[in-house]
Simulated assay, not measured.
Amino acid sequence: MAEIPSLPQRAFTVDAARRTELASAFQSGADSYDKIRPSYPPQALDFALQARPRTAVDIGCGSGIFTEQLASRGLEVSAVDPSADMLRVLAERLPQVARTCAAGEDTGLPENAFDLVSYAQAWHWVDHAKASAEAARLLRNDGWLTLLWNQLDVTIPWVHRLARIMHAGDVHRPELEPPLGTQFEKPEHGIWHWSMELDFAEIIELTKSRSYYRRSSENTRTKVEGNLAWYWLDHLGHAAGDKVQVPYLTHAWRARRRTRR
Protein backbone atom coordinates (compact mmCIF):
# COMPACT_ATOMS: atom_id res chain seq x y z
CA MET A 1 0.00 0.00 0.00
CA ALA A 2 1.31 3.44 -0.89
CA GLU A 3 2.29 5.77 1.89
CA ILE A 4 -0.38 8.27 2.88
CA PRO A 5 1.09 11.73 2.26
CA SER A 6 1.45 14.09 5.21
CA LEU A 7 -1.74 13.23 7.07
CA PRO A 8 -1.86 14.46 10.65
CA GLN A 9 -1.93 11.69 13.22
CA ARG A 10 -4.41 13.36 15.54
CA ALA A 11 -7.49 11.24 14.94
CA PHE A 12 -7.82 10.19 18.58
CA THR A 13 -6.34 13.23 20.33
CA VAL A 14 -9.10 15.85 19.99
CA ASP A 15 -9.76 17.42 23.39
CA ALA A 16 -13.12 16.84 25.06
CA ALA A 17 -14.51 20.35 24.49
CA ARG A 18 -13.70 20.29 20.77
CA ARG A 19 -15.05 16.74 20.44
CA THR A 20 -18.34 17.78 22.03
CA GLU A 21 -18.58 20.84 19.81
CA LEU A 22 -18.04 18.86 16.61
CA ALA A 23 -20.29 15.97 17.65
CA SER A 24 -23.17 18.40 18.24
CA ALA A 25 -23.33 18.80 14.46
CA PHE A 26 -25.17 15.48 14.29
CA GLN A 27 -28.04 16.41 16.58
CA SER A 28 -30.01 17.30 13.43
CA GLY A 29 -29.90 16.62 9.71
CA ALA A 30 -30.14 12.84 10.06
CA ASP A 31 -32.10 12.37 6.82
CA SER A 32 -29.41 13.94 4.63
CA TYR A 33 -26.68 12.07 6.53
CA ASP A 34 -28.45 8.77 5.99
CA LYS A 35 -28.99 9.43 2.30
CA ILE A 36 -25.32 9.88 1.40
CA ARG A 37 -23.21 7.91 3.90
CA PRO A 38 -22.18 4.46 2.63
CA SER A 39 -22.62 1.08 4.27
CA TYR A 40 -19.70 -1.25 5.00
CA PRO A 41 -18.35 -4.00 2.72
CA PRO A 42 -19.42 -7.58 3.47
CA GLN A 43 -15.84 -8.54 4.36
CA ALA A 44 -15.82 -5.94 7.15
CA LEU A 45 -19.08 -7.34 8.49
CA ASP A 46 -17.59 -10.85 8.40
CA PHE A 47 -14.60 -9.50 10.34
CA ALA A 48 -16.90 -8.08 13.01
CA LEU A 49 -18.87 -11.33 13.29
CA GLN A 50 -16.00 -13.81 13.29
CA ALA A 51 -16.85 -15.01 16.81
CA ARG A 52 -20.48 -15.73 15.76
CA PRO A 53 -22.20 -13.36 18.19
CA ARG A 54 -25.91 -13.68 18.82
CA THR A 55 -26.48 -10.31 20.50
CA ALA A 56 -24.94 -6.94 19.66
CA VAL A 57 -25.19 -3.31 20.64
CA ASP A 58 -24.23 -0.74 18.00
CA ILE A 59 -23.05 2.37 19.85
CA GLY A 60 -22.86 5.69 18.04
CA CYS A 61 -25.20 4.01 15.59
CA GLY A 62 -26.26 7.22 13.87
CA SER A 63 -29.08 6.57 11.41
CA GLY A 64 -28.53 2.82 11.63
CA ILE A 65 -26.37 2.07 8.61
CA PHE A 66 -24.23 -0.58 10.32
CA THR A 67 -27.04 -1.54 12.70
CA GLU A 68 -29.05 -2.68 9.69
CA GLN A 69 -26.16 -4.78 8.43
CA LEU A 70 -25.86 -6.50 11.82
CA ALA A 71 -29.61 -7.18 11.90
CA SER A 72 -29.48 -8.59 8.36
CA ARG A 73 -27.21 -11.37 9.67
CA GLY A 74 -29.81 -12.46 12.20
CA LEU A 75 -28.37 -10.84 15.32
CA GLU A 76 -30.52 -9.46 18.11
CA VAL A 77 -29.36 -5.84 17.93
CA SER A 78 -29.73 -2.82 20.20
CA ALA A 79 -28.79 0.69 19.09
CA VAL A 80 -27.37 3.60 21.08
CA ASP A 81 -26.79 7.18 19.95
CA PRO A 82 -26.86 10.62 21.63
CA SER A 83 -28.87 12.11 18.75
CA ALA A 84 -32.64 11.71 18.90
CA ASP A 85 -32.85 12.76 15.25
CA MET A 86 -30.50 9.97 14.18
CA LEU A 87 -32.53 7.46 16.20
CA ARG A 88 -35.72 8.72 14.54
CA VAL A 89 -34.33 7.75 11.13
CA LEU A 90 -33.11 4.42 12.52
CA ALA A 91 -36.59 3.69 13.89
CA GLU A 92 -38.10 4.21 10.44
CA ARG A 93 -35.60 1.75 8.96
CA LEU A 94 -35.51 -0.78 11.82
CA PRO A 95 -38.62 -0.53 14.00
CA GLN A 96 -37.79 -3.86 15.66
CA VAL A 97 -34.45 -2.63 17.04
CA ALA A 98 -34.36 -1.40 20.65
CA ARG A 99 -33.08 2.19 20.77
CA THR A 100 -31.41 4.14 23.56
CA CYS A 101 -30.61 7.85 23.37
CA ALA A 102 -27.36 8.02 25.34
CA ALA A 103 -23.62 8.56 25.11
CA GLY A 104 -21.25 5.65 24.58
CA GLU A 105 -19.59 6.30 27.91
CA ASP A 106 -22.82 5.67 29.86
CA THR A 107 -25.48 3.75 27.96
CA GLY A 108 -27.59 2.65 30.93
CA LEU A 109 -27.96 -0.81 29.38
CA PRO A 110 -27.63 -3.97 31.49
CA GLU A 111 -24.19 -5.47 32.09
CA ASN A 112 -23.03 -8.80 30.68
CA ALA A 113 -25.80 -8.58 28.07
CA PHE A 114 -24.02 -8.66 24.70
CA ASP A 115 -21.60 -10.76 22.66
CA LEU A 116 -20.54 -7.80 20.51
CA VAL A 117 -20.19 -4.06 20.97
CA SER A 118 -19.66 -2.16 17.71
CA TYR A 119 -18.68 1.42 16.94
CA ALA A 120 -19.00 2.25 13.24
CA GLN A 121 -17.62 5.70 12.40
CA ALA A 122 -17.93 6.68 16.06
CA TRP A 123 -14.99 5.77 18.30
CA HIS A 124 -13.39 9.19 17.75
CA TRP A 125 -16.48 10.80 19.33
CA VAL A 126 -16.05 9.25 22.79
CA ASP A 127 -13.73 9.37 25.76
CA HIS A 128 -11.80 6.18 25.09
CA ALA A 129 -11.10 5.17 28.67
CA LYS A 130 -14.73 5.64 29.73
CA ALA A 131 -16.15 4.10 26.57
CA SER A 132 -13.82 1.09 26.93
CA ALA A 133 -14.99 0.58 30.50
CA GLU A 134 -18.62 0.80 29.42
CA ALA A 135 -18.11 -1.60 26.51
CA ALA A 136 -16.42 -4.07 28.84
CA ARG A 137 -19.31 -3.77 31.30
CA LEU A 138 -21.83 -4.52 28.56
CA LEU A 139 -19.96 -7.52 27.17
CA ARG A 140 -20.07 -11.08 28.36
CA ASN A 141 -16.77 -12.77 29.12
CA ASP A 142 -14.79 -13.18 25.87
CA GLY A 143 -17.13 -10.82 24.03
CA TRP A 144 -15.70 -8.58 21.32
CA LEU A 145 -15.45 -4.85 20.68
CA THR A 146 -15.27 -3.94 16.98
CA LEU A 147 -14.44 -0.47 15.63
CA LEU A 148 -14.93 0.40 11.96
CA TRP A 149 -14.39 3.39 9.69
CA ASN A 150 -15.18 4.10 6.07
CA GLN A 151 -12.86 6.73 4.65
CA LEU A 152 -11.74 8.17 1.36
CA ASP A 153 -8.72 6.23 0.11
CA VAL A 154 -6.14 8.97 0.49
CA THR A 155 -3.30 6.71 -0.60
CA ILE A 156 -4.39 7.98 -4.06
CA PRO A 157 -3.12 11.56 -4.59
CA TRP A 158 -6.23 13.03 -6.24
CA VAL A 159 -8.44 11.54 -3.50
CA HIS A 160 -6.10 12.87 -0.83
CA ARG A 161 -6.53 16.38 -2.21
CA LEU A 162 -10.30 15.93 -2.43
CA ALA A 163 -10.37 14.87 1.23
CA ARG A 164 -8.43 17.98 2.22
CA ILE A 165 -10.82 20.26 0.34
CA MET A 166 -13.81 18.50 1.90
CA HIS A 167 -12.21 18.76 5.35
CA ALA A 168 -12.86 15.06 5.81
CA GLY A 169 -11.86 15.01 9.46
CA ASP A 170 -12.43 11.28 9.91
CA VAL A 171 -9.63 10.47 7.47
CA HIS A 172 -6.60 9.18 9.33
CA ARG A 173 -3.85 6.65 8.90
CA PRO A 174 -5.27 3.10 8.81
CA GLU A 175 -2.27 1.79 10.75
CA LEU A 176 -2.99 4.19 13.63
CA GLU A 177 -4.26 1.79 16.29
CA PRO A 178 -7.20 3.20 18.24
CA PRO A 179 -6.75 3.57 22.00
CA LEU A 180 -8.51 0.91 24.08
CA GLY A 181 -8.75 0.31 27.81
CA THR A 182 -6.90 -2.45 29.59
CA GLN A 183 -10.15 -4.44 29.69
CA PHE A 184 -9.36 -5.56 26.13
CA GLU A 185 -6.66 -7.63 24.49
CA LYS A 186 -4.53 -6.15 21.69
CA PRO A 187 -6.80 -5.48 18.70
CA GLU A 188 -6.59 -7.25 15.35
CA HIS A 189 -6.74 -5.10 12.21
CA GLY A 190 -8.50 -5.53 8.87
CA ILE A 191 -8.60 -3.30 5.78
CA TRP A 192 -10.62 -3.48 2.55
CA HIS A 193 -10.50 -1.30 -0.59
CA TRP A 194 -13.59 -0.49 -2.64
CA SER A 195 -15.19 2.44 -4.46
CA MET A 196 -18.37 4.49 -4.34
CA GLU A 197 -19.92 5.95 -7.50
CA LEU A 198 -20.60 9.67 -7.03
CA ASP A 199 -21.46 12.68 -9.17
CA PHE A 200 -20.71 16.28 -8.23
CA ALA A 201 -24.03 16.86 -6.43
CA GLU A 202 -23.33 13.78 -4.30
CA ILE A 203 -19.79 15.00 -3.53
CA ILE A 204 -21.39 18.18 -2.19
CA GLU A 205 -23.93 16.18 -0.15
CA LEU A 206 -21.15 14.01 1.27
CA THR A 207 -19.29 17.16 2.28
CA LYS A 208 -22.43 18.56 3.92
CA SER A 209 -22.72 15.41 6.04
CA ARG A 210 -19.41 16.09 7.81
CA SER A 211 -19.04 17.83 11.13
CA TYR A 212 -16.65 20.50 9.82
CA TYR A 213 -19.15 21.73 7.24
CA ARG A 214 -22.11 21.52 9.61
CA ARG A 215 -20.36 23.60 12.26
CA SER A 216 -18.96 26.20 9.82
CA SER A 217 -20.21 29.68 9.01
CA GLU A 218 -22.13 30.33 5.81
CA ASN A 219 -19.07 32.08 4.41
CA THR A 220 -16.86 29.04 5.05
CA ARG A 221 -19.44 26.69 3.56
CA THR A 222 -19.60 28.79 0.39
CA LYS A 223 -15.82 28.73 0.15
CA VAL A 224 -15.67 24.94 0.58
CA GLU A 225 -18.31 24.40 -2.10
CA GLY A 226 -16.51 26.79 -4.45
CA ASN A 227 -13.20 24.99 -3.94
CA LEU A 228 -14.89 21.65 -4.62
CA ALA A 229 -16.47 23.00 -7.81
CA TRP A 230 -13.07 24.18 -9.05
CA TYR A 231 -11.36 20.91 -8.15
CA TRP A 232 -14.01 18.47 -9.40
CA LEU A 233 -15.25 20.33 -12.48
CA ASP A 234 -12.28 22.40 -13.62
CA HIS A 235 -9.14 20.70 -12.32
CA LEU A 236 -10.26 17.05 -12.61
CA GLY A 237 -12.42 17.85 -15.66
CA HIS A 238 -15.58 15.96 -14.73
CA ALA A 239 -18.99 17.14 -15.93
CA ALA A 240 -21.43 17.79 -13.09
CA GLY A 241 -23.52 14.74 -13.95
CA ASP A 242 -20.64 12.34 -14.50
CA LYS A 243 -20.66 9.31 -12.21
CA VAL A 244 -17.11 8.77 -10.97
CA GLN A 245 -15.77 5.81 -8.99
CA VAL A 246 -14.35 7.42 -5.85
CA PRO A 247 -11.89 5.09 -4.08
CA TYR A 248 -12.66 4.26 -0.46
CA LEU A 249 -11.27 1.98 2.15
CA THR A 250 -12.74 0.46 5.27
CA HIS A 251 -10.51 -0.27 8.18
CA ALA A 252 -11.50 -2.02 11.37
CA TRP A 253 -10.17 -3.35 14.63
CA ARG A 254 -11.59 -6.09 16.82
CA ALA A 255 -10.50 -6.80 20.38
CA ARG A 256 -11.61 -9.52 22.77
CA ARG A 257 -12.74 -8.58 26.24
CA ARG A 258 -10.40 -10.01 28.87
CA THR A 259 -12.04 -12.58 31.11
CA ARG A 260 -13.35 -11.19 34.38
CA ARG A 261 -11.65 -12.57 37.43
Rank of each mutant, 00 (worst) to 15 (best):
G64Y: 07
F66G: 12
F66L: 15
T67W: 02
E68M: 02
E68V: 00
L70D: 13
R73Q: 13
G74I: 09
G74D: 10
L75A: 14
E76C: 09
E76T: 15
A79E: 07
D81P: 09
P82Y: 09
P82G: 13
S83A: 11
D85Q: 11
E92C: 04
L94C: 06
P95M: 07
V97R: 05
R99L: 10
C101H: 00
G104N: 03
G108V: 07
L109H: 09
P110D: 15
D115F: 01
D115W: 02
L116R: 11
L116C: 11
A120F: 02
A120K: 01
W123P: 00
W125M: 04
V126Y: 02
H128P: 02
H128C: 06
A131K: 01
E134A: 04
A135N: 05
A136L: 00
L139F: 07
D142R: 14
L145C: 08
L147E: 08
W149S: 07
W149Y: 15
N150W: 07
Q151W: 03
D153G: 08
T155C: 12
T155H: 15
W158P: 14
H160L: 15
L162E: 08
L162Q: 12
A163V: 03
R164D: 15
H167S: 10
G169T: 05
L176P: 00
E177V: 15
P178S: 11
P179R: 14
G181P: 04
G181K: 10
T182Q: 15
Q183K: 06
K186M: 13
H189Q: 14
G190M: 05
H193P: 00
D199H: 11
F200H: 09
F200A: 07
E205Y: 02
S209T: 05
R210D: 00
Y212F: 12
